[in-house]
Amino acid sequence: MKRSNIVAPVAAVLLAAPAAAQAHLVNSGLGPFYDGALHLLLSPGDLLGLVAAALLAGLRGARAGRLTVTALTISWLLAGMIGMRLPVTPDLTWLSVLSFLILGVLVAFDTRLSPLAVAALGALYGALHGLLNGSALAAMRAAPSALLGSVLTVLVIALLTAAAVVPVRVLWARVAVRVAGSWIVAVGMLMLGWLAQGVA
């Protein structure tokens, strides 16, 4: 076979060869910052624990609220930056579900923890989910501003949720917060079941 006979088809094939499409961020159409924010808003697993941590902080008062929101946001940002640089490859979905389940239990039982302990739990949650989110963003080859978008969304949600709960003194309203905690626990337990079954 002449050399010239094979070059053309090989070149054509190389040009036509399909490449695997990489996973990508949900496109908000407003740039990577908002794509990152949207990524978080469309991740119910992250949101449940975030809300649970903020509810717990709110139940424990203003100081716990301030400390937790600060610690959670900073740890989320730092761990997110680490995740973007050194992505975590093992599947940590179990740990993620367990983390929001535990926070839900603490809310449902209105556990009397010190503000520092609540802030430490918030920081742990932020570190875990920041790392996972950063790794996910790295896998999607997202720009660093996507991480910034998701962290600022974390800050806004945690701040508003904790601030809404801190002034609550009426019994029925505090009960509503605890019921929300029990719902988070219930979702966590069902998720553990789904994970054991290999569905989730």
Partner: peptide, 26 residues
């Protein structure tokens, strides 16, 4: 009345999910 009024709705979803988890793990 109180406190059952709120304790029951808090306990129920958690135990219901526990039952669901039992079903899911077989």
């Amino acid at each position: 009345g109180m406190p059952a009024l709120w304790v029951l709705p808090v306990a129920f979803p958690m135990m219901m999910a526990f039952g669901g988890m039992l079903g899911l793990v077989g």
